[in-house]
């Protein structure tokens, strides 16, 4: 049953590596700026690592708490448990420790946890009611692929630079407000030191935004990789393609709110401002559904099963 020799998408792998390299350059630039500024880079990175460690170890608990997902037993959800168990075996990973359900009409799912052993897969009631078994299998396959690819770990650690740059931005902002970047304390060259700190501040802001873009790009590539891996796990790229079309199509636009909650809010005339916006799509953590579906259909048309 186990399929470990999964065909690779070399182009995608190269793109991920290139993004990783650019992130490395951003890390070095940030380190350089820290040295110039006179701030202790070790101190700043230790704080950043501490924050990321907390996020890494607590992510599953935090996500479950914020989404109000409730763990369900095999007796409560036998079909879902059986499906996850079967696909985990095919994927060559242990069955996730927690299977959870969120009482939410919007069809959605997520996987979290620092390792396959500590993983959680959660689905919404909307997903269970809207998708047929094959489509649900496609989505579960995608989520298990995230676990197999250790995406929580990769993305959490990749985002360390954003955490550190964000922390620095705040620190420099408060320093500028209350201490004039400490210029008055620097003997002699107060003005020059202040100008230098301004350069560092602007540099950190630029690195922060570039890192955000790179992290989002990496996340989109990881999503495409999980689509591919999940499709191979389930044996049918069309299952996930059909689920994605259903989830993000017209059904997904149907609101959950009561008409009386929105009748005074001019909601009937609002067009989502960021839809189709180029910047919004650059910052998006998921690739556009059309691209995902097209890639899956391409996979289906090729003799993709020969890749196994």
């Amino acid at each position: 049953m186990q399929r470990n020799s999964i065909g690779k998408d070399h182009q995608l792998t190269i793109r991920m590596l290139a993004t990783g390299l650019m992130l490395l350059v951003a890390y070095l630039a940030l380190f350089g700026l820290l040295l110039i500024s006179g701030l202790n880079p070790i101190f700043v990175f230790v704080i950043g690592i501490g924050m990321v460690f907390f996020q890494y170890f607590m992510s599953d608990k935090l996500v479950l708490k914020t989404t109000k997902a409730k763990a369900v037993t095999k007796e409560e959800q036998p079909k879902l448990h059986e499906m996850i168990e079967r696909l985990s075996k095919i994927g060559g990973i242990p069955k996730p420790r927690t299977v959870a359900i969120m009482e939410m009409e919007a069809p959605n799912a997520f996987a979290t946890g620092r390792s396959p052993k500590h993983a959680t897969v959660a689905v919404t009631t909307g997903l269970l009611s809207k998708l047929n078994d094959k489509e649900l299998e496609g989505v579960i396959g995608h989520e298990l692929a995230h676990i197999k690819n250790r995406d929580v770990m990769v993305m959490t650690w990749a985002s360390l630079i954003v955490v550190v740059a964000g922390f620095l931005m705040q620190m420099l902002f408060w320093m500028s407000l209350f201490g004039g970047f400490g210029g008055h304390r620097r003997q002699g060259n107060g003005g020059q030191a202040m100008a230098m700190m301004m350069v560092v501040y602007i540099g950190v802001i630029i690195i922060y935004f570039i890192s955000q873009l790179l992290i989002s790009t990496l996340s989109r590539y990881r999503e495409l990789a999980a689509d591919r891996e999940g499709a191979i796990m389930t044996g049918s790229p069309t299952n996930l393609a059909s689920a994605l079309k259903k989830i993000s199509g017209q059904i997904a636009q149907i609101p959950e709110k009561d008409l009386r909650q929105v009748e005074h809010a001019n909601a009937f005339f609002i067009i989502p401002a960021l839809q189709g916006n180029a910047i919004a799509s650059l910052m998006s953590s998921h690739p556009p559904t059309e691209i995902r579906v097209a890639r899956l259909m391409e996979m289906q048309q090729q003799n993709w099963h020969l890749l196994r």
Binding site: Q250, I251, Q253, I254, P255, E256, K257, D258, L259, R260, Q261, V262, A267, F268
Partner: peptide, 10 residues
């Protein structure tokens, strides 16, 4: 009505 305005009535 467009789909995005198909509000519920509980």
């Amino acid at each position: 009505e467009p789909h995005e305005n198909w509000y519920s009535l509980s």
